[in-house]
Amino acid sequence: MNRILPIVKKDVTQIFRNRFIAVITFLAIFIYAVIFHIMPSKVEEAYSMGFYFEKGREVAEEQISKEEGLEVVWADDEEGLKKLVENEDVQAGLSFTLPEGKPKIVLYTSSQTPEEIREAGDVIAREAAYNLSGYPLNVEFNEVVIGPDLIGMQVPLRNKMRVLFVVVILAVEFYALGNLISEEIRKKTADAILVTPVSISEFMTAKVATGIFLTFFEGILAAFLLNIISVDTVIPFAVLLLLGAFLVVAVSFVLGTISRSFLGLTAYGTLFMVVFMIPAFILIFPGGYSFWINAVPSYYLIIPLDGIVNYGYVLSDYLPEMAYLGSFDLVMLLLGLYVLRRRLT
């Protein structure tokens, strides 16, 4: 221990004296905190829809007012309805006309309207049409939620994004620790240490300790700035952060060992970073989920992080994920230590 601590102190000093690493680390944390605080903190849950009824507006108003979560804007004519949609005053517009006595329903959406909003408009339009025509479908409709019912628990985008931010901050450590290890090998400072009474095991333990310390410290700092830490989340977040830190250290060992230059480290690091972050994007764009994402280890860090930070779940809800992540940490760390030991001897 009395030989590990000086190495850790030296490593931390060395990392923060590298301006590039220091800047990308702290600038990232600062910028993400600013982005988080300027983004809207509430979710717009109401769906705004424009209506034009050629006839029977009074009846329609009465019927439509029964629809939950629907913000209604009435247009005086079809052109006025189109204008409302075009100006994005409403997310969709529904016109109900009776040309030649036959009801005609048209749903207007803007070309900028996202697919899911169009689909929602379509559903609302059909429901409204059935209600208005007086012929509801002759079926019994029941809704059963499998798994946690998240209705009413809509999370603002910025809260989803803070999980991504934490993951990015962890991933930046690939460069910091990877560069530290790579430099020790390339500049042969590791040799200078290994001809002192410091053993290879002590040397590697010091690197693991430095990596865990830095990743953990930066993760906690980011968590404070991103309002993640609360009485309920502090322990589960710390546990997950620790598991994430081990993953980062393990990957950095491999990166630092295989990289022959800073350019090489940047190239390999970016590759690992992108893969590491993909599961975090799924939180923001759920439509992008693919089965293979389950194979990315960071998935098992990000999903519990999201659940705990954004939905109030507890660690015991994610035991299988944590077990998988822990196992992967162990395997990856052993691999990292093995390649580094081979390189040093």
Binding site: T13, Q14, R17, A192
Partner: peptide, 15 residues
């Protein structure tokens, strides 16, 4: 009990 001086200047340059 030994001291080693390497051919490479393997010092910590930021320190």
């Amino acid at each position: 009990q030994i001291g080693v001086c390497f051919e490479e200047k393997n010092l910590y340059e930021e320190m």
